Simulated scan of single mutants.
Amino acid sequence: MTGLTAVAMAVIGFFAYQASAAQNEAPRGRQAEPAASPSPSAGPEQEAPGLPAESGEGRRVVYSLADDRVWLVGADGSVLRTYGVTPGTLDPVAGVYTVTSRDERVTGTDGVPVQHVVRFTTLAGTGIGFSAPVEDGRQPVAEPGKKTGGIRESRADGAAMWEFATLDTPVVVVR
């Protein structure tokens, strides 16, 4: 189990580094447009999964529990960005929510300093939402039995979520 955890963390760290490097390549003075990010599990020939059917209409965030993937969807229904995430130990119930609170920086329930926190529900008294570790490559290692609701993103993806998901933005959670 320790070996699998180490391999998973190395892969996640590699993709976080790539996302951070890609963000740094954006021209100075101009913010990069949100673009589709490859899935951490997708190889060079694989494309990210398409937007789930029955995930609503209009501008929204879509989060797939089965795929551990997020889609940022524009008002016209086009996917502006999609990327893989690392879920916490608590999964939200499938349904439609709205962004209820945001914090620039906090310490997650797993003790990891995080930024761009976008919350949309609570479960068992624990906030559920998206966040990015302040330090590149830092991923949660939850204590056994600890309730964590942080759905972790890379720093670049967290910045895109922060810009996109303002208060009251719909969040659709699908199985």
Rank of each mutant, 00 (worst) to 15 (best):
G3Q: 10
A6N: 06
Y17N: 08
Y17E: 10
A19S: 13
A19D: 15
S20N: 08
S20F: 13
A22S: 10
Q23W: 07
N24T: 05
N24F: 05
P27D: 06
R28D: 12
R28V: 11
G29S: 08
R30M: 10
R30H: 08
Q31N: 09
Q31D: 13
E33S: 12
A35T: 11
A36G: 06
A36C: 07
A36W: 03
S39K: 07
S41V: 11
A42C: 15
A42Y: 03
E45M: 14
Q46R: 15
Q46S: 15
G50C: 06
L51R: 01
A53N: 06
G56R: 05
G56E: 06
E57T: 13
V62Q: 01
A66R: 14
A66C: 06
D67A: 14
V73N: 00
D76Y: 01
D76E: 06
G77A: 07
R81Q: 15
R81C: 09
T82Y: 02
T82P: 02
T82Q: 14
G84Y: 02
V85N: 04
P87R: 11
G88C: 12
T89D: 03
L90F: 03
L90S: 00
A94G: 07
V96E: 14
Y97R: 02
T100K: 04
T100E: 13
S101M: 05
R102W: 11
R102N: 11
E104M: 08
R105C: 05
V106N: 05
V106G: 01
T107S: 10
G108P: 00
G111P: 08
G111T: 09
V114Q: 02
V114K: 04
Q115F: 09
Q115I: 15
Q115W: 09
F120H: 02
F120K: 00
F120R: 01
F130T: 04
S131F: 02
P133H: 03
P140S: 14
P140I: 06
V141C: 07
A142S: 13
T148I: 15
T148E: 06
G149H: 03
G149M: 06
G150T: 12
E153G: 04
A160I: 02
A160T: 07
M161G: 06
W162I: 08
E163G: 14
L167P: 13
L167V: 10
P170M: 08
P170A: 08
V171L: 01
V171Y: 00
V171H: 01
V172P: 05
V173D: 01
R175G: 12
R175S: 12
